[in-house]
Design a protein around this nucleic acid. Sequence first.
DNA 1: GTAATAATGATCGAAAGTGATTGAATGTGA
DNA 2: TCACATTCAATCACTTTCGATCATTATTAC
Lengths: 251, 251
Amino acid sequence: MLTIERHEIILSLLKERVTVKMQELVDETNASESTIRRDLTDLEKANKLKRIHGGATLLQKKLEEPTVAEKTIKNSQEKKKIAEKAASLVDEGDCIFLDAGTSTVEMIPFLEGKEVVVVTNGLSNIPLLIDLNIETHVVGGYVKSGTRAFIGRSAIRTLESFRFDKAFIGVNGVAIPDGYTTPDPEEAFIKESAIKRSRQSFILADHSKFGEISFSKFSNVEEAIVVTSTKVDEEYLRNLRKMTTLKVVSL
Amino acid sequence: MLTIERHEIILSLLKERVTVKMQELVDETNASESTIRRDLTDLEKANKLKRIHGGATLLQKKLEEPTVAEKTIKNSQEKKKIAEKAASLVDEGDCIFLDAGTSTVEMIPFLEGKEVVVVTNGLSNIPLLIDLNIETHVVGGYVKSGTRAFIGRSAIRTLESFRFDKAFIGVNGVAIPDGYTTPDPEEAFIKESAIKRSRQSFILADHSKFGEISFSKFSNVEEAIVVTSTKVDEEYLRNLRKMTTLKVVSL
DNA sequence: GTAATAATGATCGAAAGTGATTGAATGTGA
DNA sequence: TCACATTCAATCACTTTCGATCATTATTAC
């Protein structure tokens, strides 16, 4: 394969997903890690992307938190474990809602081979789901450029025509008594709607989210089951347990 | 074989594929590697192409902004020209529908900088549009894995809430009197719906589509304007012109 | 036909690209 | 903090591609 061809593949994958991991690039190009590394070095020199530990990311025009991209790519073991646990809660034949976001996207690899139907509002989720041959439905709407989530009236409206067995939702803050919160009211609205339409709802939250309160509340604590890890303060977990069910993975 | 003939072959291959490998050129021309090497050196001196390790590439700025389209689609020059013409029909402030498919995706680079709102049912269109900072709305629905198009009831339903200034639609067959046709009935339904909701509709069709009849009809010939090229049989164009407006680009 | 000229194909050392390895650097979990 | 795992950059051996050269073949002029 020509060097330029690899470069194009790398850049187009980046445009699709915002961040790519080294291994994904190796798989996609059938080149060795060394070669991809050299490619990334070249492309960074040419100002086409930014290297980060474990892969690469688009150079953000706007000042998004630079750490966000890094957080995505470095799946802390914790996030991945939580995602795996969440995915294990999915049964054959389930129809599930998969929220946009970095926590939920990690669940997708663990859904491989399961006979499920997925509804999502996350643009980045879609290619991954299709690749696994999972039946995927998408909530339409306006595409928010930052998080690449579908939001807005028509997203809500589409959502209203679904009923889910389970909903898996990302979150920015989990607090008592403030409930589950996230920065963008539009996204909060989607989350709220998904939870309402689901028999069971699961909030994926790593330890950094506990005690945090973000701008938009989308649900009370007791309305969803929290999937998290033993890294969370034990007392916080005890208090939460009085109000709702927890699924806690040990690391 | 004449030197000039080889040069033509090389250049036309390049136009089709953007990059060519040395071995491909050797196979295609039945000349030795040495000869091809000399050809490439000459053509580079004449500023007709750029040599790269392992082959050659077009000498265009396009390489700086490699789009998914350029990689995944074997862009015929014709398709690109048609797309450019179609994009030129978009006015500032328009709200347009952009069909899923390889013809319409080519339009996107030409929309850069235009103040438009785009509604699309093509997954592959979305990252490209966002990248150009174009306000993008997505018809939800089931994701068809082959064409990566959104289809189904909720796609239709979302579509119903929009009204477009212009709709740009891909097609598989353009025939008289059979109208515009495409293989998948679901996709045909989307196209039909988009056309109904648009003040003006444009069908993007290269020469290979004329006289073809596919499975699902989605519109009569007279209900949309055809954007195509001079590569189409002149008589066919004359007949079509009796029924609808044509925009014909010369190659 | 023959000589002069141009184009071609083969060869080979040099240059560039690739993949594996390894110790260093960085990130993770306890 | 330390121990452990992952990722990185540097390096080496190997492969592919490149450019230069030269003998051979085709073309042209006389």
